[in-house]
Design a protein around this nucleic acid. Structure first.
Length: 201
DNA sequence: AGCAAGATTAGCT
DNA sequence: GCTAATCTTGCTC
């Protein structure tokens, strides 16, 4: 589904919503999941319709990663990062929320940007904007991406190229190339990494 | 109980 | 580019 194609029907979206990516999809190496999520769709019911957006940018947060919220073990805030694969971890930072897909215990993939596929959805380029577009708050923390309100479903296409670059907005482990972007996609958040200094593989 | 820090963003120079 | 907004969590006293 690219801009310019026919609009997604409600029945099509419902069908996809009923066939989300399953637990085993998330029970893999976190960097693999981060890359594989590019092109997947986030879908949620909105009134009688559905909202959907295509994931175009992610970041991996792994074990022994000083930048990870789980680095110092389990706390009240990060408890859902230790939940089952496919658990949604939502936290608040400053005035906004950010959403992650939990992979293996203590590891997760931050959903950084998505391309809106349905009418009326707000800008989703940036983790705070993405979470806001789906009205994700702390009340969604710990829910499941396979059976909760907001679900991740297989997409229709994959990026031709993926750009791997350092993560954004962190102060520790800033050199690790754990940010994954759909190369050239206009909805990837700034700074756009493919211009320079990143490997496109 | 108090305080520093933060996986962001909007808005202004 | 740079700063402020704004508030929750986790750690220390």
């Amino acid at each position: 589904m690219r801009p310019g194609q026919a609009a997604l029907s409600r029945s099509d979206l419902r069908s996809r919503y009923d066939r989300p990516l399953d637990g085993p999809f998330y029970d893999r190496t976190t960097t693999v999941v981060a890359r594989e999520l590019l092109g997947a769709w986030l879908v949620a019911p909105v009134g009688r319709a559905f909202a959907a957006a295509r994931i175009v940018e992610t970041e991996a947060y792994v074990a022994t990663d000083p930048a990870s919220h789980a680095y110092r073990g389990r706390t009240t805030r990060n408890a859902s990062m230790f939940g089952a694969p496919g658990t949604l971890y939502v936290y608040r930072i400053h005035q906004v929320h950010c959403a992650n897909a939990v992979t293996r215990p203590g590891e997760a993939v931050l959903l950084r940007a998505a391309e809106p596929l349905t009418e009326g959805m707000g800008n989703a380029s940036g983790p705070g904007r993405l979470a806001r577009a789906f009205d994700l708050t702390r009340s969604d923390d710990g829910s499941s991406l396979t059976e909760g309100r907001v679900r991740m479903v297989p997409g229709d296409d994959r990026p031709a190229r993926v750009t791997r670059s350092p993560r954004i907005g962190i102060s520790k482990a800033t050199e690790r190339p754990l940010r994954f972007s759909w190369t050239g996609h206009p909805n990837v958040s700034r700074p756009r990494p493919w211009a320079r200094g990143a490997s496109t593989a």
